[in-house]
Design a protein around this nucleic acid. Structure first.
Lengths: 123, 123
DNA sequence: TAATTATTTAAGCAAATACTTAAATAAAAA
DNA sequence: TTTTTATTTAAGTATTTGCTTAAATAATTA
């Protein structure tokens, strides 16, 4: 694709375009990190896992499999993705591994999860 | 996969499992909607588009293509996805179509975008 | 030590994603 | 009316995702 300016509208505000590019450049690392967390939470299964962890503090893969009615490997792979970027952490108790939301992104996730509201099921 | 209870730990708290399932059921519609928005914002290009719209109020596909150095069709397809679920809206001015963040999810997106912070580039 | 249990990992695969290029729309200008 | 410009849509494709089943780890119990 062409990398030169493709927008040749008379009204195209080149000052604005340049400012936007600079703005983005200033926050690129932050955006990269946040959109990565968003992508993780953007999967419904993982979002449910985070929702449950917020409510229950800690749960094991086996619990999630029961609650979400999914296979243990499927759950385990979702947990791994979130653990890989430190969204969640683990604690071992015998054979059981408990997952919980890590301190690192807790506030951010709490803010998002606070938007989850209870609804009345319409009959 | 087996849908029967797979977790047979002695410690498995069946009351907790049941409560979690009920909790999830109460918020299923909400979770579905939020995780859909999160999935959209979880793409770095789309997150940047939202970030830019928040700052500039409205921009056209052509602007985004310039700023993000991407092809116009690629941008257009990202915009379409967000428009399809009413995350953004459009306004036509001649040949130009301006996109902006819709009122509907503005507060939610603003809260997320407020976490984007400027960083010092380490030399 | 051998068997059981909880979890993870790996390989395979179908579906979804995000781009590309080319063609189709639609409005403005010549 | 023809051409140009802005945008969208469509078709094709490489990559990523999210599951499945089977095998590998690791800790507990018999």
């Amino acid at each position: 694709m062409k990398l030169e300016t493709s927008c040749i509208r008379a009204e195209a505000d080149h000052t604005q375009i340049l400012r936007c590019k600079e703005d983005l450049n200033m926050v690129s690392t932050s955006i990269e990190g946040i959109s990565k967390i968003m992508a993780l939470a953007g999967n419904e299964v993982r979002f449910k896992i985070l929702f449950l962890l917020k409510r229950e503090t800690e749960l094991c893969p086996c619990d999630f499999a029961d609650i979400l009615e999914m296979s243990v490997p499927a759950i385990s792979q979702h947990l791994r993705k979130m653990k890989d970027v430190n969204v969640i952490t683990t604690r071992r108790d015998g054979q059981t591994i408990f997952y919980r939301i890590s301190k690192k992104n807790e506030d951010f996730l709490t803010a998002i999860l606070s938007n989850v509201t209870s609804e009345r099921k319409i009959a």
